[in-house]
């Protein structure tokens, strides 16, 4: 039954066995093809298994079309260095901590350092662990090390 598969899937996730998690998510999807939890688990497990191409192909498959994968898709594009495409995707997203962090990392890679530093300034209120490391990188690269 599907409940047993999800129990197994959950165990693999808790043990960081991401390739195994993908296999069990596929087993769920063979029974319940559009299952949103299984599709989401598969995408996240592929990303965590460092299979960015695989994650993108699931995100872009017709079965995933009802699911909002904008952030995950933007993240995958960032990992593939398709920076402008990733940035474009984030424009239609609400400004939450995740999308702002990703945006700042993309801007850093694009060398748009003033814009990058501006996003980090806005994020400072959110108390994100290790944020200052990236903030400092942006400031140094932007030639604002004195701040």
């Amino acid at each position: 039954p599907i409940e047993d598969l999800f129990t197994t899937l959950n165990r693999h996730i808790e043990q960081s066995e991401f390739e195994q998690a993908v296999k069990v998510a596929d087993q769920v999807l063979s029974i319940a093809p559009g299952d949103e939890d299984a599709i989401r688990c598969k995408v996240v497990a592929l990303i965590k298994a460092d299979n960015i191409d695989g994650a993108l192909s699931v995100i872009q498959s017709p079965k995933s079309s009802p699911i909002d994968f904008s952030y995950f898709k933007a993240y995958c594009l960032y990992r593939q260095n398709k920076l402008n495409e990733a940035l474009e995707l984030l424009r239609s997203q609400e400004n939450n901590s995740a999308s702002m962090l990703l945006k700042s990392q993309i801007l850093y890679r694009l060398g748009e350092l003033d814009a990058c530093v501006d996003v980090y300034r806005k994020l400072q209120k959110s108390k994100i662990d290790s944020l200052e490391i990236n903030f400092v990188a942006g400031l140094i690269s932007a030639g604002k090390a004195s701040e």
């Binding site: 599907i2 409940e3 999800f6 129990t7 899937l9 959950n10 996730i13 949103e36 939890d37 989401r40 688990c41 996240v44 497990a45 990303i47 965590k48 952030y71 995950f72 993240y75 960032y78 901590s97 995740a98 962090l101 990703l102 990392q105 850093y108 994100i128 662990d129 290790s130 944020l131 490391i133 990236n134 400092v136 990188a137 140094i140 690269s141």
Partner: peptide, 21 residues
């Protein structure tokens, strides 16, 4: 080059499967 951490990765999370097991 200064170190940059991939903090965006920390927001790639699994859905809760609590109600599916």
């Amino acid at each position: 080059n200064p170190i940059v951490i991939d903090l965006a990765y920390n927001y790639i999370d699994f859905p809760s499967l609590e109600n599916r097991m």
